[in-house]
Nucleic acid binder design. Sequence first.
RNA 1: CGCGGAGUAGAGCAGCUGGCAGCUCGUCGGGCUCAUAACCCGAAGGUCGGAGGUUCAAAUCCUCCCUCCGCAACCA
Length: 640
Amino acid sequence: MSDKQTFYITTPIYYPSDNPHIGHAYTTVAADTMTRYMKMRGFDTYFLTGTDEHGQKIQRRAAEAGKTPIEFIDPIIANFQALWKTLGIEYDDFIRTTEERHKKVAQDLFQQIYEQGDIYKSEYEGWYCTSCETFFTELQLAEGHTCPDCGKPVETMKEESYFFKMSKYADRWLQFITDNPDFIRPESRRNEMINFVKQGLDDLCVSRTTFDWGIPVPFDPKHVIYVWFDALINYISALKGTGDGTLFDKYWPADVHLVGKDIIRFHTIIWPIMLMALDIPLPKCVLGHGWVLIDSDKMSKSKGNVIDPNRLCEKYGVEAVRYFLMREMGYGQDCNYTEDLLALRINNDLANDYGNLLSRTTGMIDKFQQGIVLAPGKGTEADAELLALLGSMPEKFAALMDGMQWSNALAELWTLVNKANKYIEDAAPWALNKEGKTEELATVLYNLVEIIRLVTIMVSPVMPTIPAKVWQQLGIANQSELCGWEALTWGLFPANAKINRGEPLFPRIDLEAMVAEEPKPAPAPAAAKIAALTPECQMADFAKIDLRVVKVLDCHKVEKADKLLQFRLQLGEEERTVVSGIAKFYQPEELVGKHLILIANLQPAVIRGIESNGMLLSAEYDGKLQLLEAPDMPSGAKIV
RNA sequence: CGCGGAGUAGAGCAGCUGGCAGCUCGUCGGGCUCAUAACCCGAAGGUCGGAGGUUCAAAUCCUCCCUCCGCAACCA
């Protein structure tokens, strides 16, 4: 048994309803980089990723494709795994929630919480979006009974369900967050979550009966476990359900759950409370990172701007793609992707600065010293200054990496690369050579080799295949004692080593040629923008709805609500108050006097404390909205 | 006055435990010749969102305001 300190890191388990994109790639590369770094620092690491395979959405997608869920997802999961291989991801385990080892643990834990009374049976009625796997109250729905998040139609559902007593743990959660200020990172997310919980937690509905693609509730098999409840358990089931279960004792609690900002709530509220209920120690940190935006826009299938990482790796190389992702994404922030930005990073940072540093250094050693790295002399003041920076770099770099500030760590490291390039200019080895100052020349070239060696060690977690190429060129291949974290000291490079100058590490990209061949992302098909048709209904159904022309007597914004307008309407002799969520589209004053169409016999609803008697008709398309008018008909006229 | 984050050179960002306003890219001029048309130096370009205040000194601390973003609320 090793007595090394352990480091357990996870990515979310990805939902295989579609193929992996660059956002998945970012999270997974980050986890891989962190794992390699911690391993280099001497930790006993464990890196888990996988797929979350249950839920109504996958069941439905599979049915549409005429396949069973497993037939549907297997090829997609193969694509995930193939991409991780391409990207050089070295995970220790890949868990699928359809595996027996996961199901068993998930069921055991569900049972345990039930037996201690924190899961109870009740009834749930509400509107459900299958796409988002989320229930909404009637009031939460968007116009036309659509999902407020994704805009797709929702379905009504009434279920006998099991509920998890989240509310019971709210105070304990707040105490935990107070005691562990680094649990949720970055801090802005932490504040957000605290704020959310302080407004009160509802019990969570954790079972479904309306479909069966999930893990059965052990004591009531007509229910399946809610997918999120099921999915979060993977972080534990992958350890407990494997081999003799000792992995759990060794690696739990997790050191880092790496997640996108969209699923922070599940990981920082629901998951910790599940663990509290189970009396299992909580993970040490949940890091919510930003999104990879495509040309400053959110990536989505309907926008047709999804980036396939495979294509980028093929075109620019895996190492460059990894470097770009880790360098461009600031701590907790979104980053922007365009092909130009990627190419600029490659040309500037990798080709011009780092790759070219190796190239010019080996070039001079070849030309001035017949390919031999000679022992350094005593050195000048400029040398000392450079070596001071070199000496302080590992500590600075480590501090940033430990804090998972990968972009800043790389930026810091590159100050050394830039300093080295300037050092060459100042020292002018070609002049030293001409003047026959062989000792000074040997010192400069030796220092450069050492800088390259140390930078290469530090950059290896991000670009793991680069070091071997550099060691080959420097003539120290297979000398592992020179290539690890403990070798980050100036002066270890063996004098009189023979170098092997080779091909450029990172070829420059011809930006102009690139522009010419770049295919523009296909625009989304127009048909996709039209909302799905509601199922057929009877004439009798339509006849129940009484539509009338109404005149707007008065209209103003509802206070403390940015979407709401309050109307006073004339319907024949009668006056009505109606609230409508169209403040984003109309100024109140421009509507006064208009003749609009109202659903006049709709059951009243209270919105923001105002009773609304009816609903104004409007048409919606592509983010725009227009009220229907009947300018020449009097108030009270019936629509037939 | 719901909570939080942000507003700094043409673009993207750092600085924000108060002490001459910085980095990368881009633009312009120069240098070098070891190197991947690379590298190095210099210049132009900012009233650090606005207005007050504290201080010998404010991008940095305090107050108010404006704008953008996230979360919440809201969507008959």
